[in-house]
Design a protein around this nucleic acid. Sequence first.
DNA 1: GCTATGAATGTGACCGGTCACACCAGGCGC
DNA 2: GCGCCTGGTGTGACCGGTCACATTCATAGC
Lengths: 348, 348
Amino acid sequence: MNVTGHTRRSASIRDVATAAGVSYQTVSRVINDSPSVKPSTRDRVLAAIDELGFRRNSTALALASGRSRAVTVLTSNTTHYGYASILQGIEEAARAVSYDVGVGVLESADAADEAAVAAQVRRAADAGGGLIVIAYDPAGVRALGAVPAGLPVVGVVETPASPPGGDRPWVWTDDREAAYEVTRHLLALGHETVHYVAIPSSTRRTGARTTGWLQALREAGAPEPRPVQGSWGPAGGHAAGLRLAKDPGVTAILCGNDDLALGVIRALHETGRTVPGEVSVAGFDDAPHSAYLTPSLTTVRLDFTGLGRSAFALLHGVLEDSAPIAPHPVSVPELLVRESSGPPPGRR
Amino acid sequence: MNVTGHTRRSASIRDVATAAGVSYQTVSRVINDSPSVKPSTRDRVLAAIDELGFRRNSTALALASGRSRAVTVLTSNTTHYGYASILQGIEEAARAVSYDVGVGVLESADAADEAAVAAQVRRAADAGGGLIVIAYDPAGVRALGAVPAGLPVVGVVETPASPPGGDRPWVWTDDREAAYEVTRHLLALGHETVHYVAIPSSTRRTGARTTGWLQALREAGAPEPRPVQGSWGPAGGHAAGLRLAKDPGVTAILCGNDDLALGVIRALHETGRTVPGEVSVAGFDDAPHSAYLTPSLTTVRLDFTGLGRSAFALLHGVLEDSAPIAPHPVSVPELLVRESSGPPPGRR
DNA sequence: GCTATGAATGTGACCGGTCACACCAGGCGC
DNA sequence: GCGCCTGGTGTGACCGGTCACATTCATAGC
């Protein structure tokens, strides 16, 4: 209808009001479906809304009401499979209730220094709405710690060493249990012990996966080798694998994630050790490609997407204080035995 | 200072104004560093800002000024390595100029149907700010098409078949050239021809990668087999690999991405064909793990992070109409020859 | 018949900024 | 000595909603 097509600012509630012959407040009541609007009036308003193509301005809503129907996800990296899956789960749950999802990456070029992390937290806090911090690694933990009190926040964390005090808004998958399971699987195959290549833990001491691994070793009375510190990527696994390959006593290696396992397998291959013939390797996370590796990777699947959904649900409950902080629906990790694990050399 | 610690609403410009003994407008001038403020006044205001811990409310800014210093990224999936890297690049560039980054996932549970995509675009549009659509696949392309005219948007697309008309706000990496390079590499090894397992293309007909592959075949006068339609994940590659493995004439396979290549290699392995002994396989994208596969994967690296940065830079230029749409800084794809490609069987 | 009650609707202020414009002083030109 | 410009500052309206409260009208209770 107007020639200068674009930038025709969209209709406001006052436009709708005049079109429907009511006051703007009545329009506000209709879009918030307040019960105290006469059905006939409501219909007139709805018709006007439809005709003018009215859409409620979320910015104005946020400013006026204080609540912003938005959540910011803080993560050290978006490309790791697990993190990306959590993000996707959060988005899915958020979309279902019309929340916007923002992302902040902590891993800055300058090595995730304290100041940069703090700045990101401030930015996220400024954005209003809630906060979900993926606190699996040092940067994430630092961020979670830097969140000012009073801000609605949910942490996605490793299995806490002890059940968190009361109503801590945290979610996690049971990766301690998962590590325990895989380790037991390897021990059951006849390995004398299981070595562990760790991911950078969220805590200074030992992460949940390390704990689960150790627990299984102890219960079996197996020797407890020192965990090898890896990084996140396959390169770290490769380095760790080269070191472990030097020790002929190593017959089973558990890795903190599938990428590490990949690097370890590669290193073993380069040093002429066969998998699973001489050394068994198991991963963690069940990345999409792990089933298609050669050998396919024994690993344990964690429901990251579900974890993201839970995290959002929890935050949503806090924001609308409807739900009294739901119990963390910890999904059960699923052990996937594939080709990369088998009995130790002279034992079949 | 106050006992009920939280919810102490942060200072507004009027608070700062009274503290500094000036009007709120002067405070506004200071935070927007307008030149027409007497230095002494400015100092007083800055001191007050500092003391009260004032931070400009971005919601109010957006409402009052119209511009929102935010960008929403629409992608069909956050877990694909390429997409996640683009997102990370965008976030990095956005953070540098204090823009917020939102994400919308197109791949809904109900198979990315038209209506869901349109809804996501509407939501993103409502969020204000700019839009970056990752339009490498059908869902993304549909989303890009559904963006209403007049909305600032940048598309991350496949290499266009023809140079885009004038100043289309698009960015891309030269994946046609990349495909051309890999194909030539395989042909140069002595393969009679190269088969292709395609990713779902953004266009109904043939994608840029397919085009580059075909171009290399034509120039070499090689037979032009029909591309095998794959999906994104390794499962699709596996299925395609099983089909290709039946044909003893197949000695070289190019895959639309590294995950497909992984599936193909797995399928070849299962059917008893060796890589690269009997069949050479090459991928696309250089995912982080590709170098650590056994055999390590010949592939071509595309700078996704840089692509994301470019996309944001372009959008930023549009939003602040400062830059007159910069030339798309197409980074050069880098061919990485690794173990998975070699000469064909009786030819060395 | 007159007020108490409640359903339906309207009014004004407000959230925290920006924008357009008004205002006021002082220096300059004539 | 008057007008004009210009640097520095203040005022009011506005963005598009929400919130608290006021108002209107019909019905019920006495």
